[in-house]
């Protein structure tokens, strides 16, 4: 790890000023991603601004029944919150499927959203990686890319966004609130992350000096019947090969409301609008689920080592919707 200056910020104002003044500064939430990447020499902040004691730790009910979640709420705390568990089970499930107990105790909501890809070549300084070093090439495309993306990729980068939590939030129409010295703005979560195009090093629409203060999840009736299904190489403590966040309401045998988002397959939490379009109003049957999955993955393109994810994603969408239909939402 390279030497860096350390600032502990007691409040948001101090923090946003610190990152505005220090061009190479980085915020430290739980540090579970940033510190690892600093050890691997991928992140090289000149200043680390520690926001772990900034009091953005509330989970508050909004007047409409939605939730406002402070950016420094720990993942384990959020997963255990009664309102999250009852109104947004998909979010609780997604959080609990991520990382390990120890990591979730440290990880914050803001840090989780901005965690970086687990692409094997991104974290290895000896490899060519357009995201880490623009213009250097992409070693993943001709190398190991089992974990990489099949949707929204470009010839310059096929990295996935690794978060589970963000997939649930994408399905729930969450909105991110960001603050800088210039003021506060609200960004729909599905617009927070960018697709790589020819600038894979630009990962979000945030400016370098913006701090995420909160995430708001609007009230949603369908969210009460929701699930998160994560498919991975071992039973726990592994990133998703494919994950599906879904919510489903059925009336008279037809889909009246549905939300689907995918993880592990795209450079961002992937809201499956196409699948939702096909499903809405369609009979809640295996055939419709399959048709929706086909439609969503129609433009997917894989590489030799991750082609299987396309069919896996289809099957996981179908399986998750089927389970919602048969068993209802997660308890």
């Amino acid at each position: 790890m390279r030497p860096f200056a350390y600032v502990s910020a007691p409040d948001v104002d101090t923090a946003v000023r610190a990152i505005a003044e220090q061009p190479g500064a980085k915020l430290l939430g739980g540090g579970t991603n940033l510190v690892d990447l600093m050890r691997q020499d991928v992140e090289r902040p000149t200043t680390v601004v520690d926001i772990s004691s900034v009091p953005l730790t509330g989970v508050d009910e909004l007047p409409d029944g939605g939730l406002r979640i402070g950016a420094l709420v720990r993942n384990s705390h959020l997963a255990a919150h009664p309102l999250v568990r009852t109104r947004f089970p998909v979010l609780a499930q997604a959080l609990l499927s991520g990382a390990s107990g120890q990591l979730r105790n440290m990880a914050t909501v803001g840090g989780n959203l901005l965690q970086r890809t687990r692409c094997l070549y991104f974290v290895d300084g000896a490899a060519a990686c357009n995201k880490r070093e623009p213009g250097s090439g992409c070693d993943a495309i001709g190398g190991f890319h089992r974990g990489n993306a099949v949707l929204g990729t470009s010839e310059h980068c096929v990295a996935t966004h690794p978060s589970d939590m963000a997939v649930a939030l994408a399905a729930l129409d969450a909105v991110v609130e960001a603050q800088s010295v210039r003021g506060t703005r609200r960004i729909p979560l599905v617009e927070l992350h960018r697709l790589p195009g020819d600038t894979p090093h630009l990962e979000t629409v945030l400016d370098a000096d913006e701090l995420i203060t909160a995430v708001e999840v609007p009230a949603s009736a369908v969210a009460a019947t929701s699930r998160y299904r994560k498919v991975r190489d071992r039973a726990s403590f592994a990133f998703a090969l494919v994950s599906v966040a879904a919510a489903l309401d059925v009336e008279d045998g037809a889909v009246s409301a549905v939300r689907v988002a995918l993880g592990g397959v795209a450079p961002k939490p992937w809201r499956a609008y196409e699948a939702e379009r096909v499903l809405t109003g369609a009979p809640a049957t295996e055939e419709s689920f399959r048709a929706a999955a086909e439609a969503e993955l129609a433009d997917a393109s894989g590489l030799p080592g991750n082609d299987f994810k396309i069919e896996l994603a289809r099957r996981t969408i179908v399986a998750t919707l089927r389970q919602l239909r048969v068993e209802g939402g997660a308890a």
Binding site: R118, L120, D124, F144, D233, A235, S236, F237
Partner: peptide, 28 residues
């Protein structure tokens, strides 16, 4: 799960850590 990913182009090990080299966890 266990497999050391040796990039055939370079002979470089691409998963030199317990995050990406999958030994069984308790749940397995």
């Amino acid at each position: 799960g266990e497999e050391t990913l040796l990039d055939p182009r370079t002979g470089r090990i691409m998963n030199p850590g317990l995050g990406e080299y999958h030994v069984p966890v308790h749940a397995d």
